[in-house]
């Protein structure tokens, strides 16, 4: 249960950074924090008390006493996609900085009308 609270807290902190902060790199940091919170939430849902890792590495391990592998596979995918998203977002940030010489989103006004 405490896992759920902490992961929701991390997600909300990331959302706060996206909503309030003015710096573009801070906004990307907020996005990556939201990613992290979601990963922890998904893995915590798949946890089972007294379970073992879902690897049949030794004889004698049975499927009953294992944690759920499906959220882990989902999170494995999500982490890699998160890296791709972060890389593309930071490339956009670098391009915007080269164009406008600032990272403050209040001063980047050429696309407003």
């Amino acid at each position: 249960m405490i896992y759920y609270i902490a992961s929701i807290a991390v997600m909300l902190i990331g959302l706060y950074a996206v909503l309030v902060k003015k710096n573009l790199i801070k906004i990307v940091i907020g996005l990556s924090l939201m990613d992290a919170g979601t990963h922890l939430l998904l893995v915590a849902i798949g946890f089972i008390k007294g379970g073992t890792a879902p690897i049949f590495s030794e004889p004698g391990l049975t499927a009953d006493a294992m944690v759920d592998p499906v959220p882990q596979a989902l999170v494995l995918t999500a982490i890699v996609i998160g890296l791709a998203v972060t890389a593309v977002a930071l490339a956009l940030v670098i391009r915007i900085y080269a164009q406008h010489k600032t990272l403050d989103i209040r001063k980047i006004s050429s696309l407003k009308w």
Partner: peptide, 15 residues
């Protein structure tokens, strides 16, 4: 959602 108790049917089947 209970923490650390049940397992989804899909996960059980995969395991």
């Amino acid at each position: 959602v209970p923490f650390g108790e049940n397992k989804m049917e899909v996960g059980k089947d995969y395991l």
